[in-house]
């Protein structure tokens, strides 16, 4: 076992891809650093916190991007976002078997907030363009900093999200909600509350995550490969019919669970017998317990 949660972006790519297959584009030696951080007395990183490149996954040709949460929480700035957009647009030209996004991000980088926000919207349009061209985009979310803000939206634009229990996926992070709305709205230091609200198990039960895996780089690899093969058979679907179906799913989620105040209420409505036990189950027992209980 090699923990995905604790690994770096580069470490995750090493374990995920076929050995030696990663070819990085605009690597750290290019020193394509953020032009905005220095004036704010903030150190830059040689890769601006994201690795992009080409590689192989069990022989399949993939484009990959991996955000480094250790650098400014994986936040998206001008260069970081442009690397991601450029990679996605590269897929339009090279038509790989899929694009893998190893997300780990608090969202927009405040030090360059306007550039970051615009960059995220460019990423959003690029993701949808790639999918519309028939190329699947798969998200892996299991890093220390989770996936929030604009990247939380980006993740749900993709074909599928693979999460571990430790992964987190949302829009506004618990700290942001607590700071703005007060601790009674969301207590960000209540770890159990945070995990059952935005953690992998709940996202899987809601159908926001397609696959739940153990916190193991090899498990993420296997899940990404399975999804890639599954998606290469049917391809991404962004048709009116597909979005109307998604609309119906989201509408019934609102109707069924709109009045729920805690994940436990939702899990109970899903028919899970002892919902309060779900957080303590290991991944395998959890998956066995909730089989046929997901949305």
């Amino acid at each position: 076992m090699s923990s995905y949660y604790e690994d770096s972006a580069r470490g995750r790519l090493d374990g995920l891809l076929d050995p030696g297959s990663l070819i990085e584009i605009v690597p750290p030696t290019e020193r394509m650093v953020s032009p905005h951080l220095r004036q704010l007395d903030t150190p830059a990183a040689f890769d601006d916190g994201i690795v992009v490149g080409e590689g192989r996954l069990a022989g399949r040709r993939v484009l990959v991007a991996a955000q480094e949460g250790g650098f400014m929480g994986g936040a998206v700035g001008e260069v970081h976002g442009a690397k991601l957009t450029g990679l996605l647009e590269r897929a339009l030209d090279t038509r790989p078997d899929g694009v893998l996004l190893l997300v780990e991000s608090g969202g927009v980088r405040l030090h360059e907030a306007n550039a970051g926000l615009i960059a995220v919207s460019e990423v959003m349009r690029a993701v949808l363009a790639v999918r519309a061209a028939g190329i699947p985009v798969i998200v892996l979310d299991g890093g220390t900093f989770g996936c929030f803000g604009g990247m939380g939206i980006v993740s749900r634009l993709c074909d599928a999200v693979v999460m571990s229990e430790e992964g987190r996926l949302g829009l506004s992070g618990p700290e942001v909600i607590e700071t703005t709305m007060g601790v009674e709205e969301f207590d960000s230091r209540d770890r159990a509350l945070v995990w059952r609200t935005v953690g992998g198990k709940h996202r899987y039960l809601l159908g926001e995550a397609a696959t739940l895996v153990e916190d193991d780089v090899a498990a993420f690899r296997a899940a990404a490969l399975a999804l890639l093969d599954q998606l290469s058979d049917r391809g991404p679907d962004l048709s009116l019919a597909a979005l109307e179906a998604e609309h119906a799913v989201l509408g019934s989620r609102l109707e069924r669970f709109g009045g729920c105040r805690d994940a436990l209420d939702i899990w109970e409505k899903l028919g899970v017998e002892e919902p309060e036990k779900l957080p303590i189950l290991d991944t395998a027992s959890f998956l066995a317990t909730v089989r046929d209980r997901r949305v």
Partner: peptide, 28 residues
């Protein structure tokens, strides 16, 4: 976006993404 525990619980990022997909569909 609305800053609320309940909206996060229900997956507000997925609703935002859905809206974005619909706008993109219209354009396409």
């Amino acid at each position: 976006q609305r800053l609320s525990h309940r909206d996060e619980l229900l997956g507000i990022n997925g609703y935002m993404a859905h809206l974005a997909k619909c706008i993109d569909l219209a354009r396409r």
